[in-house]
């Protein structure tokens, strides 16, 4: 086995839909303002669903789609920056929900790049022989991290989870490029539960919620994503015309269209579902991948670029060929 391939996908979003119009009753904004600047029409916001419950549902669907049993998983990574609890991790909660007792389980936080980073780690662990089948789930409750009085950020995010099962294979994963620039970390922050001990006063004055310098993040994304994808394709010796799909982190339609323009690639190659879900951080790419898989839009041999970017600042892109041949054998191939 020379590499890894994705053999199953799943996703889960909360039932409760919040439209732009409903948000206009919470902060001073409007449907047209949000749609024109982001492409977002609505988002799914959890009422009772925890990050782990969303993750477990996405994981169950991915395991079913892969045609494996939960006990086949030797590794579970949950990519999240909104874990329900620091301990136990979302990954361990997913393991419990699946009834698996043998996998290595941990959370990985690389903000919106978390799914790409986690996929890299799972791929590397499989390739090095530490396990043969892994589950990677991106799961977020972004609605709990947001300042609902800040109209610049609260309209952007949504909740959800997306998962995929990765397995040792002769074909599939081709190449990856990822990185981070901690020196620019202050343009997108979420303090969460800040730490203190009995020697220090509780840290005060700092908002626990997400804060964003919109212009700096926009420029970072529009510059970094095409540069990252260009070096990925160069590294892999793959021509742009041979790429079937670019699945970018679903942060903002304007970022995606600006990135497409800079890459010189037609916007039709960039599927978008942020109109329905908003920015679900580490969950956005696997939710989109699952939708495309279930709609039968991914075909054997399709070259797909997955690219994430986010707080840290972090970024990552992976090139793979979609492998569908195992589905014919186990009879789970999707109809069109």
């Amino acid at each position: 086995m020379k590499t890894t391939k994705i053999i199953g996908t799943g996703s889960c979003v909360p039932d409760r839909i919040v439209t732009n119009d409903e948000l206009a009753g919470v902060v001073d904004t409007s449907d047209s303002w949000i749609q024109e600047r982001t492409g977002i029409c609505r988002r799914h916001i959890s009422v009772k669903e925890t990050t782990s419950e969303l993750a477990a549902e996405a994981a169950r669907a991915a395991v079913l789609d892969a045609g494996i049993l939960p006990e086949d998983l030797g590794l579970i990574i949950a990519a999240t920056s909104s874990a329900d609890t620091v301990m136990p991790t979302v990954a361990c909660r997913v393991q419990a929900a699946l009834g698996n007792r043998s996998a290595v389980c941990f959370d990985l936080n690389a903000a919106c790049s978390g799914f790409l980073y986690s996929l890299n780690v799972a791929h590397s662990m499989i390739k090095s022989g530490l396990c043969s089948t892994a589950l990677v789930v991106g799961a977020e409750n972004m609605s709990k991290t947001i300042d609902w009085t800040d109209r610049g950020t609260c309209v952007l995010f949504g909740d959800g989870a997306g998962a995929c099962v990765l397995q040792a294979s002769d074909d599939g994963w081709i190449s990856t490029v990822s990185g981070a620039d901690g020196l620019r970390g202050d343009v997108l922050t979420y303090a969460g539960n800040t730490l203190h001990n009995f020697l220090t006063a509780p840290l005060s004055g700092e908002t626990p919620y997400m804060k964003m310098d919109g212009q700096a993040v926009f420029k970072f994304a529009v510059k970094t994503v095409p540069a990252c994808i260009n070096s990925l394709l160069e590294q892999a010796g793959c021509r742009k015309q041979d790429v079937r799909w670019y699945l970018l982190h679903q942060a903002n339609e304007r970022i995606i269209s600006a990135a497409a323009r800079r890459l010189g690639e037609p916007i039709e190659k960039f599927p978008i579902n942020l109109n329905e879900y908003g920015n679900t951080s580490a969950a956005s790419i696997p939710i989109l991948l699952d939708e495309m898989n279930r709609e039968g839009r991914l075909e054997q041999g399709d070259k797909i670029v997955l690219a994430g970017f986010g707080a840290g600042l972090t970024w990552g892109a992976t090139l793979l060929t979609w492998q569908d041949d195992h589905r014919k054998m186990n009879g789970t191939k999707k109809g069109k």
């Binding site: 212009q215 420029k219 529009v222 600006a258």
Partner: peptide, 11 residues
């Protein structure tokens, strides 16, 4: 132009 157009123009 809206704010995001200006971000692109600035770039």
């Amino acid at each position: 132009a809206d704010s995001l157009d200006l971000f692109e123009l600035v770039m």
